[in-house]
């Protein structure tokens, strides 16, 4: 019998399950795109029939880091940029958990960029939502890795001399097997994409455009948006790596010219997840490691029996 009975539990589809019954209520500014992520994640979790206690949501630091304060599940609000390594390890220790990591563009593409790159490369079976508002919001409006060139802020008074980072292209090149972009102003698409991302067996990266009405007043509200998978103006095959790459490049350029493109950019359903690869080479147990500590019949190995002979 599992020591973790919330995993795989039958539940009714009710997104209110994921709303805490008490405070805290969200403290995001009125009109903030972060509300859109929260709503989409609740809707996706309910649609997938997940129970709050089989989900673990890890976050970094920033406005986005508050996501798991307002989402009713197990949560780990970590430190700046480190939501991914903590999420990875929890999934390795107990693969039955549904693990979602989230953070802002500074958190994921700046300070945590190394973890982003390697988690994508290794194709861990987790979902990563990046709240991309092209700004540092919680610290009051500094230029971020995705801020457009020329963006003025208190820390870049003459306008940024740096070209913005290309999150989708970087994700694809690093090795993510599911890459999508959605926007807070597009709630149905956002929910559907998060459902797919959670279902996807491997690393799913969702670049989530979240408008910041307080600190990024000059920036777009990300409307109108175009769904590249639906629009007849864009023809490409999201399972084809080079076509996906071109589409991403075009999308990243278009954003700074005022056109908001969203949708699924790359989906590789054939590539085994890291967990599967690790099992294949014999370096990950078949049964969840976390269960073993509750198994009274398990005979724990010890060094005296296993390793001392070679020292004699």
């Amino acid at each position: 019998m599992s020591a973790f009975s919330a995993i795989g539990e039958e539940t009714e589809e009710d997104q209110n399950e994921f709303t805490p019954g008490l405070e805290p209520q969200p403290t995001w500014c009125p009109g903030c795109g972060d509300f859109g992520v929260l709503k989409a994640l609740k809707g996706a979790a309910a649609e997938l029939g997940l129970s709050p206690e089989e989900m673990m949501v890890t976050t970094g630091i920033g406005c986005s880091g508050k996501l798991n304060s307002y989402f009713n599940s197990y949560g780990f609000h970590t430190i700046h940029g480190r939501s991914l390594p903590i999420a990875r390890a929890a999934k390795l220790a107990n693969p039955g958990l549904t693990v979602v990591a989230a953070g802002g563009d500074g958190d994921g593409y700046g300070i945590g960029g190394n973890h982003f790159m390697h988690t994508a490369r290794e194709n861990h079976d987790i979902t990563y939502i990046v709240f991309n508002n092209e700004i540092f919001g919680l610290t009051k409006g500094q230029t971020s890795p995705t801020s457009p060139m020329g963006h003025k802020s208190k820390t870049q008074p003459h306008g940024s001399a740096k070209t913005p980072l290309r999150p989708l292209s970087m994700s694809l090149n690093a090795g993510a097997s599911y890459v999508a972009r959605t926007a807070a102003v597009n709630p149905n698409q956002a929910k559907d994409i998060i459902v797919e991302a959670i279902q996807h067996d491997g690393f799913s990266h969702v670049d989530f455009l979240t408008q910041c009405p307080t600190w990024n007043k000059d920036a777009r509200q990300y409307v109108p948006y175009i769904d590249i998978n639906e629009s007849e103006d864009y023809e490409f095959d999201k399972t084809n790596r080079s076509e996906a790459s071109e589409m991403m490049f075009e999308t990243e350029n278009a954003l700074h010219e005022g056109t908001v493109l969203t949708g699924r950019y790359y989906v590789d359903s054939d590539r085994p997840s890291y967990q599967q690869e690790k099992k294949r080479i014999g370096e990950m147990p078949e049964e969840p490691l976390a269960e073993r500590y509750f198994d009274d019949s398990y005979e724990w190995e010890r060094s005296f029996d296993n390793f001392l002979d070679k020292h004699k």
């Binding site: 973790f4 919330a6 089989e54 780990f76 609000h77």
Partner: peptide, 13 residues
């Protein structure tokens, strides 16, 4: 521990 019924909470720095 995450996955346990009746144990959900927020861990935070």
């Amino acid at each position: 521990l995450p996955g346990q019924k009746g144990g959900r909470y927020l861990a935070t720095g």
